[in-house]
Design a protein around this nucleic acid. Structure first.
Lengths: 148, 148, 148, 148
DNA sequence: TTTT
DNA sequence: TTTT
């Protein structure tokens, strides 16, 4: 059993990439989740790294963005990589299986991602809110060559 | 909202320490959680770092141990520290708020911790199973000087 | 272990009552949570009964209302009562331990509850959004005589 | 968002049925989850109704049973039916998406279910423990005619 | 650096 | 390296 649920705000626009192999979309971003109990009244937050795969990665890249509130459910994943200094580094992140946009509106008009952004007319300026949840559509087939 | 639930096995006995300041107990350990979907049939797991505070830390140090199955609920916490090479390192771990021993029996009889271990007669060799859950008893008062 | 997380909309304004004994506040309401998979495209939802105790009950009664989006974490509780026809009825509901207002704004200006509603100037018409989470402040002391 | 995680014990052996239409397997049972905080020291539990579909329903019927410890993740579902006295009754239950046997061993040798029970030699008397989790294999296609 |  |  490995279950996570988070509600927080994106610290930046998501980064959209595609795996070299199968071309699966992957979005990565960080979510700031305010802590319930902070010492005295200081505002404190946890900054949790998120990974999303497949069609949801594209939705995420297009319908949410920096500062927007988002709900996520998924699981904690750990992996290691070799740092440039030769040491092994360990990463703990959340793989999102379900993403719920609690505030809509994306910042990524200027692109840099392969998505053409033609949704921006519908969602760009308007602040609409919904309860739609996007489920996992691609089994995260762990290509071996992860682009981050 | 920041909620985590895990069921997995300890990869080692927990490490019990006490904060220099208030003397609060802190236990740290890693839990191996088998993944539901692994590529082909290879056994794969996530190795998730756990922190437990207060009275629960002591229970954990004494009633569970390497290889034992445990249930955890809590939240994801991120923090940073300065590595010896001068760079900043980021850590993501789970702060357990509730710990449930799904298999009892500890390995740390020989001690090294301040706990006297007199429970070992009751729980040491026997493999008993229960559903008792130990709640958070100390608000994790983030001493500033965390001993790990 | 008994953990629930929900994001959904109130089907009505919360009902605020106070226990005869200790005078603890209790709010009850129903949250509609859209299903991810519904047969064909029909909109379907689960209508989940929620109970909140203490100071949070009052916040809930005042800062949210019919149609508003809310995040809840808590646990499932079951209880039974004797129906007027002499049969025993079983109830399953969610006891909220944490409530997060994803959209603010209450409908209960006209009252009927004992709360004086003097917050309505601040929160009444404006649609502001936040991430503030209100934790459990009163241990739900199960008076024995629950007013619903 | 609608997420539930439970760890508890079956109050009885699961009941296995098959939908008239598609012949999908459905198992139903109740899980007793001990409460963390009970008034004084009295042992109290919540008795939570569970529904499992598909292949997992069969696993459940065969590899677990009365008194066994089980981990469940899923969602809360509400439905209504017409009671014999003409009134509408509302039911809240947990639809399990993931089931983890924390203690193995089934009681349903004598059958009544279509499963032939030939696993009982492997799992019957031995008390083995594992971490295997069985995922949802059939999208719970809500036949319309649910056999309970 | 990992558990069964 | 962080969000409102």
């Amino acid at each position: 059993m490995n279950k996570v649920v988070l509600i927080g705000r994106l610290t930046k626009d998501p980064e959209l990439k595609f795996t070299p192999g199968t071309g699966s979309a992957v979005a990565t971003f960080t979510v700031a989740v305010d802590r319930r109990f902070s010492k005295d009244g200081q505002k404190e937050a946890d900054f949790i790294p998120i990974v999303v795969w497949g069609k949801q990665a594209e939705s995420t890249a297009n319908y949410t963005g920096k500062g927007k509130l988002i709900g996520i459910s998924g699981r904690i994943q750990t992996r290691s990589y070799d740092a440039k200094d030769g040491t092994k580094r360990y990463v703990t992140e959340v793989v999102a299986e379900e993403v719920q946009f609690l505030e809509w509106g994306s910042g990524n008009k200027a692109a840099g991602s392969s998505f053409n952004g033609n949704m921006s007319e519908e969602f760009g300026k308007t602040q609409s809110f919904g309860q739609e949840t996007y489920g996992e559509d691609i089994t995260p087939v762990d290509d071996g060559d992860i682009p981050f």
